[in-house]
Structure formats: structure tokens, C-alpha cells
Amino acid sequence: EADPRLIESLSQMLSMGFSDEGGWLTRLLQTKNYDIGAALDTIQY
């Protein structure tokens, strides 16, 4: 079963217009401990 923190973070990022095609966003959020800010910083640079 998916981590509730992942579901919450992923749904927030999907609502911002990101896609999780191929699961890349799920993996990114997992490596950033479900921190949306850290994930966005990684995507920006």
C-alpha cells in the first residue's frame, strides 16, 4: 500500500499540473522524503 505522505504530496503536485508518467514524480518525491518544496527545487534546476 502506498505511503499516505506520498499520496498527499503526489496529488498536490498533480493538481499543480505535473504528471507522473512513468512514475518519475513518485520516485522523486520518495527521494525527497515527500517534500514538495525540495522536489520543485530539483525540477527547477
Score class of each variant (00 low, 15 high):
residue 35 D to V: 05
residue 5 R to A: 08
residue 3 D to V: 06
residue 25 L to Q: 00
residue 23 G to C: 07
residue 8 E to L: 11
residue 5 R to Q: 09
residue 44 Q to S: 08
residue 11 S to Q: 12
residue 37 G to K: 15
residue 24 W to N: 05
residue 42 T to E: 15
residue 10 L to F: 04
residue 34 Y to A: 04
residue 45 Y to A: 15
residue 42 T to R: 05
residue 44 Q to E: 13
residue 8 E to A: 13
residue 32 K to V: 15
residue 42 T to M: 11
residue 4 P to W: 10
residue 2 A to V: 13
residue 8 E to V: 12
residue 22 G to V: 03
residue 44 Q to K: 14
residue 12 Q to Y: 11
residue 23 G to A: 05
residue 32 K to I: 10
residue 39 A to Y: 03
residue 41 D to L: 15
residue 34 Y to Q: 03
residue 32 K to Y: 10
residue 23 G to E: 05
residue 44 Q to A: 11
residue 4 P to I: 12
residue 21 E to I: 09
residue 27 R to N: 09
residue 2 A to E: 11
residue 8 E to R: 10
residue 17 G to D: 02
residue 41 D to Y: 10
residue 42 T to K: 08
residue 33 N to L: 08
residue 32 K to T: 14
residue 30 Q to I: 15
residue 3 D to G: 06
residue 20 D to N: 12
residue 12 Q to V: 15
residue 40 L to I: 10
residue 20 D to M: 00
residue 19 S to Y: 09
residue 35 D to H: 06
residue 13 M to D: 02
residue 9 S to N: 04
residue 24 W to C: 09
residue 17 G to H: 02
residue 8 E to H: 12
residue 24 W to Y: 08
residue 26 T to S: 12
residue 30 Q to F: 07
residue 37 G to R: 11
residue 45 Y to E: 15
residue 2 A to Q: 14
residue 44 Q to P: 05
residue 17 G to I: 03
residue 7 I to T: 13
residue 43 I to K: 00
residue 21 E to H: 11
residue 27 R to Q: 10
residue 7 I to Y: 10
residue 6 L to E: 05
residue 16 M to S: 04
residue 14 L to F: 11
residue 45 Y to D: 15
residue 11 S to M: 12
residue 12 Q to T: 13
residue 18 F to I: 04
residue 15 S to P: 03
residue 22 G to M: 08
residue 6 L to S: 04
residue 7 I to H: 10
residue 22 G to C: 14
residue 21 E to Q: 10
residue 18 F to L: 07
residue 43 I to S: 02
residue 35 D to A: 04
residue 21 E to G: 06
residue 44 Q to G: 11
residue 45 Y to M: 15
residue 22 G to L: 07
residue 41 D to T: 12
residue 25 L to A: 02
residue 20 D to G: 02
residue 26 T to K: 05
residue 36 I to A: 04
residue 40 L to Y: 07
residue 37 G to P: 11
residue 42 T to C: 15
residue 28 L to D: 01
residue 11 S to E: 13
residue 33 N to V: 07
residue 9 S to D: 01
residue 16 M to G: 03
residue 38 A to K: 11
residue 9 S to Y: 06
residue 10 L to D: 00
residue 2 A to T: 13
residue 4 P to Y: 10
residue 7 I to P: 07
residue 15 S to I: 12
residue 16 M to Y: 08
residue 17 G to Y: 02
residue 28 L to Q: 00
residue 7 I to C: 10
residue 20 D to S: 02
residue 4 P to Q: 10
residue 14 L to K: 12
residue 38 A to H: 07
residue 43 I to N: 03
residue 41 D to R: 14
residue 34 Y to P: 01
residue 31 T to K: 13
residue 12 Q to R: 14
residue 12 Q to I: 15
residue 10 L to W: 03
residue 22 G to R: 06
residue 23 G to R: 04
residue 25 L to C: 05
residue 41 D to H: 13
residue 19 S to G: 09
residue 2 A to D: 14
residue 20 D to R: 00
residue 16 M to K: 07
residue 35 D to S: 08
residue 15 S to L: 11
residue 20 D to K: 01
residue 19 S to D: 14
residue 15 S to F: 06
residue 39 A to W: 03
residue 6 L to I: 06
residue 18 F to E: 02
residue 7 I to L: 14
residue 24 W to S: 04
residue 13 M to T: 01
residue 7 I to G: 09
residue 31 T to N: 13
residue 5 R to T: 05
residue 13 M to N: 00
residue 11 S to W: 09
residue 41 D to V: 12
residue 17 G to E: 02
residue 24 W to E: 05
residue 1 E to Q: 14
residue 40 L to V: 06
residue 15 S to G: 14
residue 14 L to S: 08
residue 32 K to L: 15
residue 16 M to Q: 05
residue 45 Y to W: 08
residue 27 R to W: 06
residue 20 D to I: 02
residue 29 L to G: 00
residue 14 L to D: 04
residue 16 M to F: 09
residue 5 R to H: 07
residue 1 E to Y: 13
residue 29 L to A: 00
residue 21 E to N: 12
residue 32 K to W: 08
residue 19 S to W: 07
residue 5 R to V: 06
residue 17 G to C: 04
residue 25 L to R: 00
residue 6 L to P: 03
residue 36 I to G: 01
residue 4 P to R: 11
residue 20 D to E: 03
residue 41 D to K: 14
residue 8 E to S: 13
residue 31 T to G: 10
residue 30 Q to A: 10
residue 31 T to S: 15
residue 19 S to V: 11
residue 23 G to K: 06
residue 25 L to T: 00
residue 42 T to Q: 14
residue 38 A to N: 06
residue 45 Y to L: 15
residue 20 D to P: 02
residue 24 W to R: 05
residue 43 I to A: 03
residue 14 L to V: 10
residue 26 T to Q: 06
residue 21 E to P: 05
residue 36 I to K: 03
residue 39 A to I: 07
residue 16 M to I: 06
residue 37 G to Y: 14
residue 23 G to L: 08
residue 29 L to I: 05
residue 44 Q to F: 15
residue 35 D to P: 02
residue 23 G to V: 01
residue 35 D to I: 05
residue 30 Q to L: 11
residue 12 Q to K: 15
residue 3 D to M: 05
residue 9 S to R: 05
residue 34 Y to M: 06
residue 19 S to F: 09
residue 3 D to E: 08
residue 3 D to Q: 06
residue 35 D to N: 10
residue 9 S to P: 09
residue 30 Q to W: 06
residue 31 T to Q: 15
residue 32 K to D: 03
residue 13 M to E: 01
residue 2 A to S: 12
residue 37 G to F: 13
residue 41 D to E: 14
residue 33 N to F: 09
residue 37 G to L: 14
residue 27 R to M: 09
residue 33 N to I: 06
residue 18 F to Y: 13
residue 12 Q to L: 14
residue 31 T to W: 11
residue 42 T to Y: 15
residue 15 S to C: 13
residue 16 M to W: 09
residue 1 E to C: 10
residue 41 D to M: 12
residue 27 R to L: 10
residue 36 I to F: 05
residue 29 L to Q: 01
residue 12 Q to C: 13
residue 37 G to H: 13
residue 13 M to A: 03
residue 42 T to A: 15
residue 1 E to N: 13
residue 26 T to F: 01
residue 25 L to M: 05
residue 45 Y to K: 15
residue 43 I to C: 09
residue 38 A to C: 08
residue 27 R to F: 06
residue 37 G to E: 14
residue 15 S to E: 14
residue 23 G to F: 07
residue 22 G to T: 09
residue 35 D to R: 02
residue 45 Y to T: 15
residue 39 A to S: 06
residue 27 R to D: 08
residue 28 L to C: 06
residue 9 S to V: 09
residue 6 L to R: 04
residue 26 T to W: 03
residue 27 R to P: 02
residue 6 L to D: 02
residue 31 T to A: 15
residue 3 D to K: 05
residue 26 T to P: 02
residue 19 S to A: 10
residue 1 E to I: 14
residue 20 D to A: 02
residue 45 Y to P: 15
residue 1 E to G: 13
residue 24 W to T: 04
residue 44 Q to I: 12
residue 7 I to N: 11
residue 35 D to Q: 06
residue 5 R to F: 06
residue 2 A to K: 13
residue 30 Q to E: 13
residue 17 G to F: 02
residue 4 P to F: 11
residue 45 Y to Q: 15
residue 30 Q to S: 08
residue 19 S to R: 09
residue 25 L to E: 00
residue 40 L to P: 00
